[in-house]
Design a protein around this nucleic acid. Sequence first.
DNA 1: CTGGATTCCTGCTTGC
DNA 2: TGCAAGCAGGAATCCA
Length: 283
Amino acid sequence: MGETDRIVLGEEETYLPELPEVESVRRSLIANQGAKIKAIELNREDIVRRHDFAIDRLQDKNIREFSRRGKYLILNLGPGYNLIIHLGMSGRFYQLNEDSDITAKHVHAVIWLDNGKKLVYEDPRRFGGLYLIKNRKQFFNRMGVEPLTKEFTPAYLHKITRNRKIAIKSFLLSQNQVCGIGNIYADESLHLAGIRPDRPAGSLTAGEAERLCQAIKKVLQQSIDSQGTTFRDYRNGLNQEGGNQSNLQVYGKDKEQCPNCGEVICKQTIGGRGTHFCEKCQK
DNA sequence: CTGGATTCCTGCTTGC
DNA sequence: TGCAAGCAGGAATCCA
């Protein structure tokens, strides 16, 4: 990436893999379905956050399917064997030709396949990790509804927010009600819906819940269609940048004008997270 | 159960 | 110029 790429991207350049980014990684690696794991190189034992079985058991397993739940990427390796990957703040998961040199500094694991590729996991900040999971359903049993499914409806969102005092933004980030939304798409969804991020979740009317539900779906789908948001570091599994940064309305745009009304976008800390919104068109 | 605070970690930014 | 300090941020964990 050249310097010109950096200049247009703004000051707050961070890689925040959320649902659209993980989905884009998943889609970009689909061609590796059916490949067999020849070997696994683990450079840090503690990057495996949970062992339901020894990592050696993955050898000779076929990757039956790449799937996703929330922000987690799932490699289904047959009954009782799942390699689940979370990218945390700064994680990347991508394929290389098996003979390509790896120059990255924080490569914690490499999965060698029998199709001439290897899958590389790196994560400088190590907020992410690998999970060796026997029972997928159990692993995800506390995770909220997938926002892009028909289960996530305006009525459902309205129902689960009743009597909740937590800020609606924090509610969206919590993962156990609705999953896959992180800081970027929480801010973008609330802006599109015209709702202040610090409103108590329980204060949303049925109409506001409907707007928010539809905004979440639109913002996430739009990003998937653009292959995710690349501020600086994000790449999909084929080392390609996403294009959704050009669709952002408020995230990372404090002190700039709201594209909707021209008011200056403000930034406040809500629930311990940097939050961008427009005080004029979000009520 | 709920909501708030704390913790983990590195790299970038800021300030002197 | 150089170095120390500050800070961001997902989610598990702890506490009241």
